[in-house]
């Protein structure tokens, strides 16, 4: 199992899980706030739509193409 942090809260996921999976396991599944203020969640699952972009250790990454790593800090809110 891997322990990481999602918006300041601890999350534990199976090894090999994507950050997109961690968003649902440790939160409400959402990844970002849209221009109009609504929350969005991963859509295409394959690195195309950019809806799942989150901040991982200070860098913008796509949650669906990023594997969880121990100690990772994931942020979904500005």
């Amino acid at each position: 199992m891997i322990d990481l942090t999602l918006d300041g809260r601890p999350v534990r996921v199976a090894a090999g899980s994507t950050v997109a999976a961690a968003l649902a396991i440790g939160g409400d599944g959402t990844s970002r706030t849209a221009v109009g203020g609504a929350r969005r969640a991963p859509l295409c699952g394959m690195g195309i739509c950019q809806e799942c972009r989150v901040t991982v250790d200070g860098v913008r990454r796509l949650a669906c193409q990023t594997l969880c790593a121990p100690g990772m800090q994931v942020e979904t809110r500005p």
Binding site: V13, A14, G16, S17, T18, A20, A21, A22, A24, I25, P42, L43, C44, G45, M46, C64
Partner: peptide
């Protein structure tokens, strides 16, 4: 296909 990909990546 998106749901499939997300499930494969560990989405419960």
């Amino acid at each position: 296909g998106g749901l499939q990909a997300l499930i494969k990546g560990g989405l419960p």
